[in-house]
Amino acid sequence: MPRSIWTGAISFGLVTVPVKLYSAVNRKTVRFNQLNGKTGSRIAQKRVDASTGEEVAYEDLVKGYEIAGDRYVVIEPSELESVQPEKTKTIDIEDFVDLSDIDPIFYDHPYYLAPGTGGAKPYRLLLEAMRETNKVAIAKVVIRQKESLVAIRALPDHDVLEMATMLFADEVVDPERLDDIPEADDVKTNARELDIAKQLVESLSGEFEPGKYRDTYREAVLAMIEKKAAGEEIVVQEVEEEAAPVPDLMSALKASLDAVRKTSGDGDAGGDGAAEKPAARKRAAAKPKAGAKPAASKKG
């Protein structure tokens, strides 16, 4: 049973909505400990003075911000407290925006918001209003002494509000700063190449089903650990890497489309770009079920 990690209220105009905050993810990363290969014992991490090589006691540690090579500004705890945001228990909504206006790159960590004591009705009212208008609330909240920018939206298939912490604009790298992105005028594509590429995209299109995607690497690592713990020998096979020839772009597009259509039973992809669009995987075009809610964009 998940436990709430924060309680407070959403400030919605003059209305307050008592809420409880829950983490929406349970990370499944396989974590390893560092061991001494000779003894099998865990490695202890120690705080060592770089100039003397001696271990430093915890009570002697201070915070320092590097302003130049080996030059630091030491900050006292009381000085940090003087600039920390005011501790409040409210999620202050500042704006409502269209869901499509938010680039998924700004999303950070997802949470669920559940109604707190006495908050069932205003919670439901806010959820339904946001769902009907397809709007997302942009708000600020202080959690664990840090002010965060957050986005709140009504999940399309569940009667619950989702809150995601967001990156601030100056934390996102401007893609214009990337040197490896060619100018549009420097790379030319022709209509036939584009048409086949679009057909390939259509052939691979369908509804998003999160459950069909699995972390196969994590599963393989856990299976290997289980076998080794049971005493089985792990055989490591050396794989020789061979440089694969770079195929012609048009040939690669047609071969890819042929492979997809053969798998879906749609026939050959040969001929001109006017070939009819495959329908085998276009489940999204099916009629919606009765009472189904319209899907909203999800973050990536």
Rank of each mutant, 00 (worst) to 15 (best):
V201C: 02
M163T: 03
D179P: 01
L161H: 07
D157H: 13
L167W: 13
M163P: 01
T189W: 12
D174K: 10
E209G: 02
M166D: 01
L149G: 06
D174C: 10
E183G: 12
F168V: 14
T189K: 08
E207V: 11
F208Y: 15
R192C: 03
A151M: 05
A151G: 09
G211I: 08
V160L: 11
D215V: 12
P156R: 04
E171T: 10
S205M: 04
L155W: 01
D159M: 07
I152W: 08
L155G: 04
T165A: 08
I196S: 00
D157A: 07
E176C: 05
R177K: 15
D215E: 14
I181A: 06
L167R: 15
L200K: 04
Y213V: 15
E171L: 09
A191D: 06
D174A: 15
E171D: 10
K188Y: 00
M163A: 05
S203M: 04
A197N: 02
D215P: 13
L194Y: 00
A151H: 06
I181C: 05
F168Y: 10
D185R: 15
L194R: 06
E202W: 10
R177P: 02
V172N: 08
K212E: 13
Q199F: 02
S203R: 01
L155P: 00
G206T: 11
D195N: 06
I196L: 09
T216C: 01
Q199R: 15
D215G: 10
A191T: 07
R153V: 03
